[in-house]
Nucleic acid binder design. Structure first.
Length: 445
RNA sequence: GUGGCCGUAGCUCAGCUAGGUUAGAGCGCCAGGUUGUGGCCCUGGAGGUCGGGGGUUCAAGUCCCCUCGGUCACCCCA
């Protein structure tokens, strides 16, 4: 009987090797994609100082922060001075402010790390999860053209992940505020509250949003107009620009002009029209977004929710420096994306971290087997060796389960002839080849 | 933080509504059939104090209470 049940806490994702390989391959694809667009790698500590982490956050975020405290401190009843990062944007703000004079602006970085949120775990809601962020930060002013570069990069990366069609939905918070303004809703917190309701349009449907708008004090007619406007989902760049052109006056002008520029640059960047859509209901809950906002869903699986989101923020690091640092960025929730794809049976094809296993059937064969393995490793082939003899059938079965494609069989016959039998576990075929030709043979398959 | 639902083998579940022989199935796992050949098939095996505690009863997986755990929705979010 074991005294302690081995188990993880809810809200963390732990994988077996075969799935870990797929997860890691996705992470690598994202990283390489970000690098291709000229973003630089940054990694920040998982643990930050509490005062740094909690500055610009509201009460809601603070509720989700994990505090970190040593056992000694705890005994002495001290307040925690450290906490786990709950996103990568706040650490980025600290990073840019701290290293301001050593960075080139506009500063573009990618960052792929785990973050922590102390919320009730749910399907697709994790307490520990990977975020894959890109952001562009500049001093004083940041060209709105970068607001097109961010989704262009994301579109390229999601394409490379080969997870089916997706749509990056784009809006501008100023546009939504303008529409509310026209509908007679002014001031805070009224606007923010209603923006939050409209953001749920696709999730809870127009009736319930209408109820919320009325409950928020809007007149029936104004609510209907607003609902109709925010239901806009364009399917082409032309349609999107025309929509914005119609909206481009009065309180909505700033947002519409800015979005138009974003859409034009998006086209110049060569992003296919089917990859994005102007969606006037998108708002994002986070209050620090001030302009462009993005939200991404898979076309065939909208129920999986947002797999990638972000936006523009006027002043990233106002709490840390007097320098005005506007930024724009997006984040792929890799843990959610991976999990949802797995649940939907949509994971990319199996990838093995091992190309071949050298089997071992008798003690006398060890030297030869290890020699064969060395030969392959020198050629860059990933090889596992058996160190104890075992039944061949068992070795083949284990290799098959691990997703390893090739098994090398070296019995007495192969040894004396300086050959090896290469069995292809995917095809169910095998061939005996001389050692001299082994590497070439494997690389050809 | 608020509110629903559910806890029976590693996993998915049946048995509970009418308490009553040694608690079952499928899948998975292990071994053998095949002493140098995986997947398919056949045979056998391991694995459960029915989440935990208390109560009712001659008798509790089954009924009642408490507790712990899981899960879903809301809030919020990747």
């Amino acid at each position: 009987m074991s005294p302690i049940t081995p188990r993880t806490m809810p809200g963390v994702l732990e994988l077996l090797p075969r799935e870990q390989e797929i997860h890691d391959a996705m992470r690598d694809t994202i990283r390489r994609g970000y690098a291709r667009f000229g973003f630089l790698p940054v990694e920040t500590p998982t643990i930050e100082r509490t005062d740094v982490l909690l500055t610009k956050t509201g009460g809601e975020t603070e509720r989700q922060v994990y505090f970190v405290q040593s056992a000694g401190q705890l005994e002495q009843g001290g307040q925690p001075e450290l906490a786990l990062a709950f996103d990568l944007t706040v650490p980025l703000a600290r990073y840019v402010a701290e290293h301001e004079h050593d960075l080139n602006f506009p500063f573009r970085r990618y960052q792929i790390q785990r973050v922590y949120r102390g919320e009730r775990a749910q399907r697709g809601r994790w307490r520990e999860f990977y975020q894959c962020d890109i952001d562009i930060i500049d001093r004083d002013e940041l060209s709105v053209r970068h607001d097109a570069e961010i989704p262009a990069t994301i579109a390229s990366v999601l394409d490379a992940l080969d997870i089916g069609d997706f749509t990056i939905r784009i809006n501008d918070r100023r546009l939504m505020r303008g529409l509310l303004e026209e509908a007679g809703v002014t001031g805070e917190p009224a606007q923010t509250d209603l923006i939050r309701e409209i953001d749920k349009l696709d999730k809870i449907g127009p009736e319930k949003v209408r109820d919320a708008l009325l409950a928020g004090g809007m007149a029936s007619g104004a609510a209907d107009t607003l609902l109709q406007q925010t239901s806009t989902r364009t399917t082409s760049a032309e349609e999107a620009l025309a929509t914005l052109s119609d909206l481009g006056s009065g309180p909505t002008a700033a947002g519409a002009d800015s979005l138009s520029e974003v859409l034009r640059v998006l086209a110049d960047l060569g992003v296919p029209e089917m990859r994005y859509s102007l969606d006037l209901s998108i708002a994002r809950g986070l209050d620090y977004y001030t302009g462009t906002v993005y939200e991404t869903t898979l076309d065939d699986h909208p129920e999986l929710g947002s797999i990638c989101a972000g936006g523009r923020y006027d002043d990233l690091a106002g709490q840390y420096t007097k320098t005005h640092l506007p930024g724009v960025g997006m984040s792929i929730g890799l843990t959610r994306l991976f999990f949802q794809l797995r649940e939907a049976g949509l994971l990319p094809a199996n990838i093995s971290a091992i190309d071949a296993v050298v089997t071992l059937m008798d003690e006398d064969g060890l030297g030869y087997a290890l020699e064969v393995a060395s030969l392959l490793r020198e050629a860059g082939i990933r090889v596992e060796t058996r160190m104890e003899p075992d039944k061949l059938g068992r070795q083949l079965r284990n290799a098959d389960r691990a997703g390893i494609r090739f098994a090398l069989i070296d019995g007495g016959a192969e040894r004396s002839a300086r050959t090896t039998t290469v069995r292809d576990l995917d095809e169910g075929t095998q061939e005996t080849v001389p050692l001299d030709h082994l590497v070439q043979h494997l690389k050809h398959r």
